[in-house]
Design a protein around this nucleic acid. Structure first.
Lengths: 145, 145
DNA sequence: CGGTATCCGTTCTGATACTG
DNA sequence: CAGTATCAGAACGGATACCG
């Protein structure tokens, strides 16, 4: 796995003398951005949502997400584990058994994420309308002259 | 585990009788995921955070974000505009002047995002500790034998 | 079962050059 | 000023093969 660990923190410049929340992207703020990236990750959200309901085994997770490849599930799980959001338990039995569960920290994150999901669900329609309007405007402008 | 639904990679199997939020990844749910991706986008957040304070011109945004390339700022702004989160106003003056501002919809999104940012800030330390612990454990296991 | 290692096409993004 | 167009390099993610 060469990719999971070293994510380019982009850069971290400042210099305009006019920041605030922007520090998300500056040195110390990069941490926040990093975590935000993890949370925003395509598969992380699904995994967290599933584990919030109950502990699951590797294969159970894979079956439930379906679109995910074994590789990405592993990578995602490792990241979440490293961040202390998920706990991995290996049972030393003959057919290996590995359980994944949300840590208390992971659980609080899930609650927070829910707000965002709810917002999205509530405004889905508005956004769809905005897109349609935008695209139509574009078409008109592109129309053969 | 009759996941005999496996066919299209992007599709989702259910049959486990245990879904809900998982629909994020299924046909209709894809919309939610799409929007979530936009929100989660690296630059979108910065732009939204900045515009939440006040209207800004293209160059002002670029200077404030610093790490962003002109290309990515343009792309990001177009996406946000298309989704109805940002409004773009072109002033027909000689040195072109284009203002960007948050729409009411964009403003409500900002409020929602804040919760996530706050969570991150509050748990930054815990996560950092978890990472350190995880990495140390890894080192021990990897140590030359 | 639950991974890890590797190959490789696709996507994303930054740098650069040019325009109304 | 505020873009657009193009291109190359890096990152992402799937498929595949093999292991404890």
């Amino acid at each position: 796995m060469e990719e999971g660990t070293s994510k380019s923190p982009t850069h971290c410049a400042d210099t305009d003398g006019d920041y605030d929340i922007l520090q998300w992207d500056t040195r110390e703020g990069c941490e926040v951005r990093q975590i935000l990236d993890r949370v925003a990750d395509k598969w992380s959200l699904l995994v967290i949502a599933l584990l919030e309901r109950r502990t699951l085994r590797f294969t159970e997770l894979r079956n439930r997400i379906e679109g995910i490849s074994q590789r990405m599930l592993t990578v995602t799980l490792r990241q979440l584990e490293r961040d202390g959001l998920v706990r991995r338990t290996v049972h030393p039995v003959v057919p290996p058994r590995v359980d994944y569960e949300l840590t208390p920290l992971g659980a609080t994150l899930h609650a927070t994420i829910q707000a965002l999901v709810t917002w999205t669900e509530e405004h889905q329609h508005e956004i769809a309308l905005a897109r349609t309007a935008y695209d139509r405007r574009l078409d008109h402008g592109t129309e053969a002259s």
